[in-house]
Amino acid sequence: MMGVSSVKEDVKAVIVVGFAGLVAGVCSMAIGEFVSVCTQRDVQIAQMKREKRKGSSKSDENDEKLPNPVQAALASALAFAIGAVLPLLAAAL
């Protein structure tokens, strides 16, 4: 946004660029978080399977504690969107 605003004085162009950055950042953060949590979940499931083979009782307790990748992705996207809206509001005002 700063680069476009330094070259062009049109507020509409600055807002369009800011909105494009917001959408790109939200998508990037959500996808990255989803992949990260999926990997973490896979590791935890593999660990639980190993514990079941060994006969440990810890695996029954961990079934409820598995992370949800979709929930983590939505939380990350929302946090980024809140942070990215602030420069957009400043440009609009």
Rank of each mutant, 00 (worst) to 15 (best):
Val4Leu: 15
Val4Cys: 15
Val4Pro: 09
Ser6Arg: 06
Ser6Glu: 15
Val7His: 05
Asp10Trp: 15
Asp10Asn: 12
Val11Asn: 04
Val11Arg: 08
Lys12Gln: 11
Ala13Met: 06
Val14Thr: 15
Val16Asn: 10
Val16Glu: 07
Val17Leu: 14
Gly18Ser: 13
Phe19Cys: 01
Phe19Ala: 04
Ala20Cys: 13
Val23Asn: 14
Val23Arg: 14
Val23Leu: 15
Ala24Thr: 02
Ala24Cys: 11
Gly25Lys: 03
Cys27Met: 14
Ser28Trp: 07
Ser28Cys: 08
Ile31Glu: 00
Gly32Leu: 02
Gly32Lys: 03
Gly32Tyr: 00
Glu33Gln: 13
Val35Ala: 08
Val35Thr: 15
Val35Phe: 06
Ser36Arg: 04
Val37Ala: 12
Cys38Tyr: 00
Cys38Arg: 04
Thr39Pro: 02
Gln40Thr: 05
Arg41Gly: 01
Asp42His: 00
Val43Ser: 06
Val43Glu: 05
Gln44Thr: 03
Ile45Met: 00
Gln47Lys: 10
Gln47Trp: 13
Lys49Phe: 08
Arg50Pro: 00
Glu51Ser: 03
Arg53Trp: 09
Gly55Met: 03
Gly55Asn: 03
Ser56Cys: 05
Ser57Met: 14
Lys58Asp: 08
Lys58Val: 13
Ser59Tyr: 13
Asp60Thr: 09
Asp60Ile: 10
Asn62Met: 11
Asn62Glu: 12
Asp63Trp: 12
Asp63Gln: 08
Glu64Ala: 02
Lys65Ser: 01
Pro69His: 10
Pro69Ser: 06
Val70Met: 11
Val70Ser: 12
Val70Arg: 12
Gln71Thr: 09
Ala72Glu: 09
Ala73Ile: 01
Ala73Val: 01
Leu74Phe: 15
Ala75Phe: 07
Ala77Val: 14
Leu78Val: 13
Ala79Ile: 14
Phe80Ile: 14
Val85Asp: 05
Val85His: 06
Leu86Gln: 07
Leu86His: 02
Pro87Lys: 04
Leu89Val: 09
Leu89Tyr: 08
Ala91Ser: 14
Leu93Met: 10
Leu93Tyr: 10
Leu93Pro: 09
